[in-house]
Structures are given as C-alpha cells and as structure tokens.
Design a protein around this nucleic acid. Sequence first.
DNA 1: CGAGTCGTGTTGACGATGTCAACATATATT
DNA 2: AATATATGTTGACATCGTCAACACGACTCG
Lengths: 205, 205
Amino acid sequence: MTDQAGAYHHGDLRAALLAEAATMIAEAGAASVTMREIGRRLGVSRAAPYRHFADKTALLVAVAAAGFDRLKRRLQTVEAGAPGSSLERLRRMGEEYVRFALENPAHYRLMYGKEALTRQDLPALREAANAIFEQLVEVFQTHQRSGGIKRQDPRAQAYVAWSAVHGLASLWIEGQIHATDDIDGLIRQTTRTLLEGMRVRRRGA
Amino acid sequence: MTDQAGAYHHGDLRAALLAEAATMIAEAGAASVTMREIGRRLGVSRAAPYRHFADKTALLVAVAAAGFDRLKRRLQTVEAGAPGSSLERLRRMGEEYVRFALENPAHYRLMYGKEALTRQDLPALREAANAIFEQLVEVFQTHQRSGGIKRQDPRAQAYVAWSAVHGLASLWIEGQIHATDDIDGLIRQTTRTLLEGMRVRRRGA
DNA sequence: CGAGTCGTGTTGACGATGTCAACATATATT
DNA sequence: AATATATGTTGACATCGTCAACACGACTCG
C-alpha cells in the first residue's frame, strides 16, 4: 500500500478522475461524461477508471456526493457567520442554497437527477442530501425555541423550505423561468414568502 | 396524404409509438426507452420510428408534451369545478399538481429533466410548461382582485407557488422525502404555508 | 538482494445503442 | 395504368460501457 492513497503509475488517478469529471460536467453536462473521453483527457486508457470506480455510475455518484459536501459547508458558513437578525440568517441560507445551484447548474442537476444514475447504490447520495436536511431541521428547531417560527413539526417545516428553494433552483436550471425576469428578486420573494408563512403572528387571521 | 393522419402499413404507427413510449417510461423510466426496443414491442423495425420522429429526443419531447397537456387539463378541472372557497380552490390546485407528479413519477421527471433530452429543439416543451404557468398567473390575478392575495407581481407569485409544488414533487420522486413521513400532510402543509405567506392581513407585522 | 504478490494500467473483444444510406413496397394521385 | 410519395426494412458504422487477459511497477518478506 502507499501512504498517499493511490499514487502509483499516474499519481492519484482517483482524484484526477473526480476533478476531470466535475470539469466535464460543468462544461457540457453530465451526459458528456464518458469513460473513454475522461481517459483520453487524462492520458490513460479507457479501462483505467475501473480500477478506482466499479462503474460509471459509481464515479458520478462520487462526484455528486462531493457537490453535496460543498453545498453543506457553504450553508454552514451562512448559518454561522452572516450578519443580520436570526430570522434574516435563516432566509439567507435559503438564498445561498439557490445561488449554489445557479452557479453549478449541471452539477446540481446531477446531484438530484437519479435518472442519469441508473438506480444502484445511491444510499450514499441520499445520505449526503439527508445530512443537509438534518442540518436544516436543527435550524428550524432553534428558531422555534427563540420564538420567531410557528411551533409545528420542524421536519415538515424543513421539507417545505427545502422544496421551495429546490424547486426554484430546478425550474431556473431547466430554463422554465424566463431570463427577462429578475431572478435575484425572485429568490428574495420566495424566501420571504416562506418565512412569512411560517412566522408567528400576534393578531389577524 | 391520408385523411386519418398516418395510417399506412402499420395503422397509425405514430400514435402507437407515443403510447408505447409512455408505457415503457411508466414501467421502467425514460432511460429504458430505446428505439430498437420500442420497435420490437410494436413489431416494426428499429428504423421505422424515424419516419415519424426526427430522432429519439423528438419522440421523448412529444411524450413529455403530452404529459403537460394532461396536467394542464387536470388543473383546469380543479380550478373550475372544485368545492370550497376561492382560496381553497387555489390551494387544491397546488395539491393536485403534486398528486399528478406522484402518480406519474417517471413521466414527470421526463417533463422537466432536460438532461435526458439532449439540448435541441425544446422550445415546444418549454412552451407546454409555460402554458400551465400562464394559467397560474391568471388565477393569481383573479385572487388579487377578489382580495385574498397580496397585490404583488402575479408572475412572481406564480413562480413562487410553482417552485414550491414542483420542488416537493421533485424531492419526493427522487426519494429524498422519507417514506415514513406523511406525504399527504406534507402536501397540505406546503400549500397552506404558501397561501399564508401570500395572503393579505389586517393587522400584525 | 531476489522472489513473489498485489496494485495499477493496457489492449482486445463483445453486445447494445442511435442513426444514416440504400432499398423495397404500399398507398395516393393523375 | 403510371407515377410519385409516404412508409417500412436491412445493412452498416461509430460510439459506448464493460469484461477478460495480459503487462508492469512497487511493495513485502525471505
């Protein structure tokens, strides 16, 4: 074995495969990732990747999982360090989620589009996505206690919020939201409407 | 030309292709649709479909467009004929949207997953989706006038609502919402939170 | 230091797929 | 009846994912 995991002939081909696949996805979508082409680009043969990933799906799943990790860290940063009130920070988490998706459309699509990944060992992916969800649940629990948010099942609240931001990101990525529209304003209005619908009120219906 | 469009050797192969493709999608997902397999099932050769559709993408686009038509009619039915107050009808439209998606998961995924359909002449699809959107915009305009809904840009409101229901459907279809959860309750809570966030209020912040 | 073992990469091959060109035939048109 | 057009078929090609067989480098153990 090697101390630096996987550095034989090529020099950490596994990492190179992950990086190159991510590049190809960003450039031309997940459908453009081909075992043969990725080999060509890295100067190895077509079968070389099979020494590091069981099949193409496994490679794509690993790339997608890395995307979830990046997204998770990004949300944590907002939660921890952004300025503004507590509820405002929650709202900004939603904004940041959508921004991540808009900045990495093809990667985001891969993360959620199980169609591209023929059903297989996707528990790893589901778990990666779930980690983000659990984090969101905790945030809602916190805000229920601090009084800004209605005391409902926080898991349900988290699903509702997740749905809204994921849906907005998804529709935009698929080109369903016309470019003439103000996407930043739309992100803002989405997160605001959500919060408005979940906030505790003193009076009125 | 024929009076009954396309009824030569086979007897309306075009319609048969659309129907069989839809069946295959429901059975095993869009990835299972193959020009050769669909030919086998219909008893024609592998190249026969090319007389009716330019390529595989064109066939899938047509199937997806048919899905949008079905969805649109279903929503119109709710809007026109459901019982309950005006705002309650709006909420039920959202519920019905999600239900359609849950009943036809693979088809719904095809309708929005442009990844499966290599970028090409998808204006037809976008337009089909847009027809539903425009319908939704009108509903919001109506409810703004009748007083239940905040007077904001109705297009933005429609996008927010669409995002929420599409996101919920999408997450469920991709298996991100745990089966132990009460999906019907979640649909309800999603539509309620949305409406709550958009409704006009007399007092309170 | 030498032999063997295992990790890593290569080439050859197979079946499946989308699609085109060339050909065949049925239907419509005149 | 003759011709044109719509429809369907077969052959072929490039590409793809993947496996088996082989080759080589690096580490281990004597």
